[in-house]
């Protein structure tokens, strides 16, 4: 396997909101490597710079935002400080948190075609890719609907399709379910599940929903105070309940339960997923 993303010693500060103030470093030396085809989740306290890191992957940070940057980010061999953002967009697709501001067209079809039109893709191919992308997110038949009339979950699926249509190697999802209700969350996660299992894309997902992170991720990256604090399998990360609490992050409830029982019995239980927990807890009783 090859490293498709390499982040070395990345530090970044936005231009100060009030002119004349000192810049505040959001990222302070982030090191990160992602293998091709890996599913990596990023967790971190509110305001730790998760979005900033996502934007650094497609060059918007620092090319559009300005500010100060140290270290470097290589995506598919390209330096995101130099390679123009539209060129990077073909390799790294970013889906943002707020559906309202990332769907700016009058029809679902136009929305998905937009990126392809910008890239000068021939018309027949645009047509094919639009219907392919809609099929992937399960929105076939919505071509003529205005995006702003869709439900939250549908909007986010269209947003994902509009990025998928550009066929990037890497998909970055920046808190894609934060603004959705449980039904919408479930819709988006089922699309993510589908992408995870069937398409072999490299996926980076920023999320707070630890239960879903446990389900999908090959690795969990925990950002804290501008650095990578943990980078390991969900089992390893979520078993450190106390450390995660200190950082201010959630672990799946079943991991909390395992921790609670371990304290009681001095045992070594470790489960991060529901079925695993159920099996273990039943087994423990039957075994006695």
């Amino acid at each position: 396997m090859s490293k498709i993303i390499v982040v070395e010693e990345l530090s970044y500060a936005y231009p100060p909101a009030i002119p004349g103030h000192d810049p505040v470093w959001v990222l302070r030396g982030v090191d990160l490597e992602v293998e091709e085809g890996e599913f990596v989740s990023i967790m971190g306290p509110t305001g730790v710079g998760k979005t900033t890191l996502c934007l650094a992957l497609n060059g918007i940070v620092p090319q559009s935002t300005g500010g100060l940057i140290k270290g470097r980010v290589l995506v598919d061999g390209l330096d995101t400080k130099r390679e123009p953002v539209p060129q990077l967009a073909q390799r790294v697709g970013v889906v943002f948190q707020d559906p309202e501001t990332q769907l700016f067209n009058m029809s679902v079809e136009a929305e998905i075609a937009f990126g392809l039109e910008c890239l000068g893709v021939p018309r027949d191919e645009i047509k094919e890719r639009v219907s392919w992308a809609l099929a992937v997110v399960g929105m076939t038949g919505f071509e003529d609907r205005p995006p702003f009339q869709l439900s939250g979950g549908q909007k986010q699926r269209v947003a994902i399709a509009s990025i998928l249509a550009m066929m990037p190697k890497i998909l970055v999802l920046d808190e894609p379910t934060a603004n959705l209700d449980p039904l919408g969350k479930a819709e988006v996660f089922s699309v993510v599940r589908e992408l995870r299992h069937k398409r072999g894309m490299t996926i980076i997902m920023v999320e707070h929903e630890s239960e879903h992170i446990a389900e999908f991720s090959d690795r969990v990256i925990v950002l804290n105070e501008g650095r990578v604090e943990m980078a390991d399998t969900p089992d390893k990360v979520f078993s450190q309940v106390d450390r995660m609490r200190e950082i201010g992050l959630a672990v799946p409830q079943v991991s909390e339960l395992a921790d609670c029982l371990n304290h009681r019995f001095n045992s070594q239980l470790n489960f991060t997923q529901f079925d695993e927990a159920l099996r273990t807890l039943k087994g423990q009783l039957d075994g006695r």
């Binding site: 918007i60 123009p84 539209p86 967009a89 970013v94 501001t101 990332q102 990126g115 990025i163």
Partner: peptide
């Protein structure tokens, strides 16, 4: 969002 869709290529 516009930039992420390759606007301005």
């Amino acid at each position: 969002a516009l930039e992420a869709r390759a606007f301005g290529a």
